[in-house]
Measured scan of single mutants.
Amino acid sequence: NNDALSPAIRRLLAEHNLDASAIKGTGVGGRLTREDVEKHLAKA
């Protein structure tokens, strides 16, 4: 659900052409954090 993404996370996802649903969020309520996105990028 993109409504739960902060603007910074949306921008980071867009810059790397990532789909938020492909990344498991570890923030409050399962929200994506910058660390989640960076860890996903490091794996790729």
Rank of each mutant, 00 (worst) to 15 (best):
A20V: 09
V37Q: 00
V28Q: 11
N1Y: 07
L32K: 02
A14F: 10
D36T: 00
D19A: 09
I23S: 01
A44G: 12
N2M: 12
D3G: 11
R10K: 14
S6M: 06
A42Q: 13
E35K: 09
S21T: 12
I23W: 05
L41Q: 02
P7Y: 06
T33S: 04
N1I: 13
R10W: 08
V28G: 08
N17W: 05
A8S: 10
L32Y: 02
A42E: 11
N2K: 12
E15M: 15
S21D: 13
E15K: 15
K39S: 11
N1Q: 14
G25K: 05
A22K: 12
I23Y: 01
E35Q: 11
L5H: 07
L13V: 04
T26R: 03
T26S: 10
K39F: 10
N2Q: 13
R31E: 09
V28D: 11
D36S: 00
R34V: 15
L12E: 04
N17E: 05
V28H: 11
K24A: 10
N17G: 15
A8L: 09
R10T: 09
L13H: 00
I23F: 04
R31S: 13
R34L: 15
V37D: 00
I23V: 08
T33V: 05
D36M: 01
A42H: 09
A20L: 08
L41F: 05
G29F: 06
A4S: 12
G27L: 03
K43H: 14
A14Y: 09
E15R: 13
P7H: 11
T26L: 03
A4E: 15
G25P: 09
K43A: 14
K43S: 14
G29Y: 05
A4W: 15
R10G: 07
A4F: 14
H16A: 06
A22P: 02
S6P: 12
R31V: 13
L41V: 10
P7K: 09
T26M: 03
L12C: 09
L13W: 02
L18G: 02
G30A: 04
A14I: 10
H16K: 04
V37S: 00
S6C: 06
V28Y: 10
I23N: 00
N17P: 01
